[in-house]
């Protein structure tokens, strides 16, 4: 299957400070050599915590941010759409729902009001909302309903790929379940490719085919969800999986690890995770390469 979208060795650096002549003196290294590919009908999960470069990755994928180096591949003809995290902020409070939902359409082609309203009604029905609510405003809907509106908007441009940027992290569990069910049903029906960006291990495990675990702008582990979660090879992936609170496993007794991220201004010379790594040993001071085992399971650790 051909890749719907992909990144090849993408780096993104932001200038943080300049000297008096305008030359960049300090840079933030947001992405440090990221390569991914998503095929049609498949879902790639990007798993990571704050500061790992997830949001920068979303901006590069959606074309909002050009990579400092590296390439974005695949079909880029406006076939990419997005659903954002906060359904309060992602819908314009001053627009009626029919304008919100059809914005990706009328931005490019002036369309008659009646046609747009009809289209909006269809889209609302698609995402499980009442089609006669097209004239309402965002504040008249609950958080889950607003996220459905955001999904309807993402669908209106008939995309091949939808970037889902933490689509359920502002929602309650019971509502999260509704939204994930809806997205899976839409994918099955329309053959969409998804990139799901999330910090939620359980959501990624449930929802994705493949996963890329990110740390400090790098992918540290990548592979099918089954293999990565059943047999996490990178120490960071293990730390992350262990940290998720579980129900019914009893009282917590944990060692206290270092949790501070290294600065992304000057990157560590060796492995980015070594200052927090329980397995750190000789060899970690050298840069680590993302290298493969069986079945496309890639790990960036010489000790794995």
């Amino acid at each position: 299957m051909s890749a719907a979208i992909g990144l090849e060795d993408v780096f993104v650096r932001f200038p943080v400070a300049r000297d008096w002549r305008g030359r960049v003196t300090v840079q933030a290294h947001a992405l440090n050599g990221v390569s991914i590919a998503v095929a049609r009908g498949r879902t790639l999960g990007i798993l990571g915590e704050s500061g790992c470069g997830k949001s920068t990755l979303a901006q590069v994928l959606t074309g909002l941010l050009p990579p400092s180096s590296g390439r974005v591949t695949g079909d880029r003809d406006g076939r990419i759409s997005i659903v954002l995290q906060d359904p309060n902020s992602s819908l314009d409070p001053r627009m009626p729902v029919w304008r919100i939902v059809t914005e990706p359409v009328f931005l490019h082609a002036p369309t008659r009001r009646e046609a747009l309203r009809a289209m909006a009604a269809d889209l609302l029905e698609c995402v499980g909302l009442r089609p006669d609510h097209v004239d309402r405003y965002p504040h008249e809907f609950s958080g889950g309903q607003r996220q459905r509106i955001a999904i309807a908007r993402a669908l209106s441009s008939k995309p091949d790929i939808i970037i889902l940027d933490e689509p359920t992290s502002a929602l309650d569990v019971s509502v999260q379940a509704q939204i994930l069910n809806l997205l899976l049903a839409l994918q099955a029906e329309l053959g969409l490719a998804f990139v799901l960006i999330s910090h939620n291990v359980a959501v990624i495990r449930h929802f994705c085919d493949e996963v890329a675990v990110m740390y400090l702008g790098q992918i540290v582990e990548q592979g099918s969800v089954d293999t990565v979660f059943a047999d996490p090879a990178h120490p960071y992936t293990r730390t992350l999986l262990d940290a998720v609170p579980r129900i019914g496993t009893g009282r917590a007794h944990h060692a206290l690890d270092e949790t501070e991220l290294p600065s992304n201004r000057t990157l560590p010379t060796g492995c980015f995770f070594q200052n927090r790594c329980p397995m750190a040993a000789a060899g970690c001071e050298r840069p680590q390469i993302l290298s493969g085992g069986a079945g496309g399971h890639l790990v960036r650790c010489h000790r794995a």
């Binding site: 019971s174 999260q176 379940a177 994930l180 449930h206 129900i247």
Partner: peptide, 17 residues
């Protein structure tokens, strides 16, 4: 509430919303 979480069902199968 306990059953609505993604942990409660097999991957990709519908969640108990």
């Amino acid at each position: 509430l306990l059953q609505a979480g993604p942990e409660a069902v097999a991957p990709k199968s519908p969640l108990a919303a």
